[in-house]
Lab assay of single mutants.
Amino acid sequence: DDVELRDGDWRVELKDADEEILRAVEEAIKNGASEQELRELAERLIR
């Protein structure tokens, strides 16, 4: 699993992620995405 989400800690570690993925995830976090939404976003972007 390349995506690590810690309970109560919104730092997201994406291994080997490019800047576009990181920006998309950071934007989702700023917009108040839930953990499930972040997982789905990350899975779509990593593929």
Rank of each mutant, 00 (worst) to 15 (best):
residue 6 R to N: 14
residue 34 S to F: 01
residue 7 D to I: 08
residue 12 V to W: 13
residue 36 Q to V: 12
residue 12 V to N: 05
residue 2 D to W: 12
residue 40 E to M: 02
residue 24 A to L: 12
residue 13 E to M: 15
residue 46 I to W: 03
residue 1 D to Q: 13
residue 13 E to R: 09
residue 10 W to G: 03
residue 3 V to Y: 14
residue 21 I to D: 01
residue 6 R to V: 10
residue 4 E to P: 07
residue 44 R to M: 09
residue 32 G to L: 01
residue 34 S to T: 08
residue 24 A to I: 15
residue 32 G to H: 02
residue 11 R to D: 04
residue 17 A to H: 09
residue 28 A to Y: 03
residue 9 D to Q: 12
residue 30 K to M: 13
residue 33 A to G: 02
residue 37 E to C: 10
residue 29 I to R: 05
residue 16 D to Q: 07
residue 26 E to W: 14
residue 39 R to A: 06
residue 31 N to Y: 03
residue 33 A to K: 05
residue 19 E to V: 14
residue 21 I to K: 01
residue 15 K to P: 01
residue 47 R to F: 15
residue 14 L to P: 02
residue 36 Q to A: 13
residue 30 K to L: 10
residue 35 E to L: 11
residue 7 D to C: 01
residue 33 A to V: 09
residue 27 E to W: 10
residue 6 R to G: 14
residue 20 E to F: 13
residue 4 E to Q: 11
residue 46 I to A: 04
residue 32 G to D: 01
residue 11 R to L: 10
residue 33 A to Y: 14
residue 21 I to H: 02
residue 20 E to A: 13
residue 8 G to Y: 14
residue 9 D to S: 09
residue 45 L to I: 04
residue 17 A to Y: 13
residue 35 E to V: 09
residue 32 G to V: 00
residue 2 D to T: 11
residue 3 V to C: 14
residue 29 I to M: 14
residue 46 I to F: 11
residue 12 V to S: 11
residue 18 D to F: 08
residue 22 L to M: 12
residue 12 V to R: 08
residue 38 L to Y: 05
residue 2 D to A: 12
residue 17 A to W: 11
residue 23 R to W: 10
residue 37 E to W: 03
residue 6 R to A: 12
residue 26 E to Q: 02
residue 34 S to G: 05
residue 11 R to N: 05
residue 3 V to Q: 11
residue 30 K to F: 09
residue 7 D to P: 06
residue 18 D to S: 00
residue 12 V to Y: 08
residue 30 K to C: 12
residue 23 R to I: 05
residue 45 L to T: 01
residue 39 R to G: 02
residue 16 D to I: 10
residue 15 K to Q: 05
residue 5 L to A: 04
residue 36 Q to K: 10
residue 38 L to W: 15
residue 34 S to L: 03
residue 25 V to S: 00
residue 15 K to V: 13
residue 11 R to V: 06
residue 29 I to V: 12
residue 3 V to P: 01
residue 14 L to R: 01
residue 28 A to D: 00
residue 38 L to E: 00
residue 28 A to Q: 02
residue 38 L to H: 00
residue 10 W to L: 04
residue 28 A to E: 01
residue 14 L to V: 03
residue 42 A to V: 15
residue 32 G to I: 01
residue 19 E to T: 06
residue 6 R to P: 06
residue 29 I to K: 10
residue 23 R to S: 07
residue 15 K to T: 07
residue 3 V to W: 14
residue 1 D to R: 09
residue 14 L to W: 02
residue 40 E to I: 08
residue 31 N to Q: 11
residue 27 E to Y: 03
residue 35 E to Q: 02
residue 39 R to Q: 13
residue 1 D to A: 12
residue 41 L to P: 00
residue 33 A to H: 05
residue 47 R to I: 12
residue 7 D to R: 02
residue 31 N to H: 08
residue 32 G to Y: 01
residue 31 N to D: 06
residue 22 L to I: 11
residue 19 E to P: 14
residue 11 R to M: 13
residue 37 E to A: 02
residue 3 V to I: 13
residue 3 V to G: 15
residue 14 L to A: 02
residue 43 E to C: 13
residue 4 E to D: 11
residue 28 A to G: 02
residue 12 V to F: 05
residue 44 R to Q: 10
residue 5 L to R: 04
residue 38 L to Q: 03
residue 25 V to G: 00
residue 47 R to E: 14
residue 12 V to E: 15
residue 46 I to C: 06
residue 17 A to N: 03
residue 35 E to H: 09
residue 32 G to N: 05
residue 7 D to T: 07
residue 4 E to I: 12
residue 33 A to N: 02
residue 17 A to C: 03
residue 10 W to K: 02
residue 22 L to W: 14
residue 40 E to G: 03
residue 9 D to E: 04
residue 20 E to S: 12
residue 26 E to R: 12
residue 7 D to Y: 07
residue 10 W to T: 02
residue 7 D to F: 09
residue 13 E to A: 11
residue 16 D to G: 12
residue 32 G to F: 02
residue 27 E to I: 10
residue 3 V to N: 14
residue 25 V to R: 00
residue 19 E to S: 06
residue 23 R to A: 12
residue 20 E to G: 13
residue 35 E to M: 09
residue 12 V to I: 08
residue 36 Q to I: 12
residue 45 L to W: 03
residue 46 I to T: 07
residue 39 R to V: 05
residue 17 A to K: 05
residue 8 G to P: 13
residue 21 I to L: 06
residue 10 W to M: 03
residue 22 L to S: 03
residue 1 D to S: 14
residue 23 R to M: 09
residue 17 A to R: 04
residue 25 V to I: 14
residue 43 E to P: 00
residue 9 D to W: 15
residue 38 L to G: 04
residue 14 L to T: 02
residue 7 D to G: 11
residue 25 V to N: 00
residue 46 I to K: 07
residue 35 E to R: 04
residue 30 K to E: 05
residue 34 S to W: 01
residue 1 D to F: 15
residue 14 L to K: 01
residue 29 I to D: 04
residue 25 V to W: 07
residue 6 R to D: 14
residue 16 D to V: 07
residue 21 I to R: 01
residue 18 D to R: 09
residue 34 S to P: 01
residue 39 R to E: 03
residue 3 V to M: 12
residue 44 R to H: 07
residue 40 E to S: 05
residue 21 I to A: 03
residue 5 L to S: 08
residue 21 I to P: 00
residue 5 L to N: 12
residue 40 E to A: 12
residue 9 D to I: 10
residue 11 R to Y: 13
residue 33 A to I: 11
residue 32 G to E: 01
residue 27 E to G: 03
residue 19 E to G: 09
residue 38 L to T: 03
residue 37 E to S: 04
residue 41 L to W: 02
residue 32 G to P: 00
residue 1 D to P: 12
residue 34 S to D: 07
residue 26 E to P: 00
residue 35 E to T: 06
residue 5 L to E: 13
residue 31 N to E: 06
residue 30 K to T: 04
residue 11 R to F: 13
residue 8 G to R: 14
residue 12 V to M: 10
residue 34 S to A: 03
residue 34 S to I: 02
residue 25 V to C: 07
residue 47 R to D: 14
residue 41 L to K: 00
residue 20 E to I: 09
residue 43 E to Q: 11
residue 16 D to M: 09
residue 33 A to M: 12
residue 23 R to H: 06
residue 19 E to H: 10
residue 41 L to S: 00
residue 38 L to A: 14
residue 11 R to K: 08
residue 14 L to S: 01
residue 38 L to N: 00
residue 34 S to N: 06
residue 10 W to H: 02
residue 28 A to W: 04
residue 33 A to Q: 03
residue 15 K to W: 09
residue 21 I to G: 01
residue 18 D to I: 06
residue 15 K to F: 09
residue 42 A to E: 03
residue 47 R to V: 13
residue 21 I to M: 06
residue 36 Q to W: 12
residue 42 A to I: 15
residue 47 R to H: 15
residue 33 A to P: 00
residue 45 L to E: 02
residue 41 L to V: 01
residue 34 S to R: 01
residue 40 E to F: 03
residue 42 A to D: 00
residue 36 Q to T: 08
residue 28 A to N: 00
residue 22 L to Y: 04
residue 10 W to I: 05
residue 5 L to V: 11
residue 4 E to A: 13
residue 37 E to T: 06
residue 12 V to Q: 06
residue 9 D to R: 05
residue 37 E to M: 06
residue 39 R to N: 03
residue 7 D to H: 04
residue 29 I to W: 13
residue 29 I to C: 14
residue 44 R to V: 09
residue 27 E to H: 07
residue 45 L to G: 01
residue 23 R to G: 02
residue 46 I to P: 01
residue 45 L to H: 02
residue 34 S to K: 04
residue 9 D to K: 08
residue 12 V to A: 12
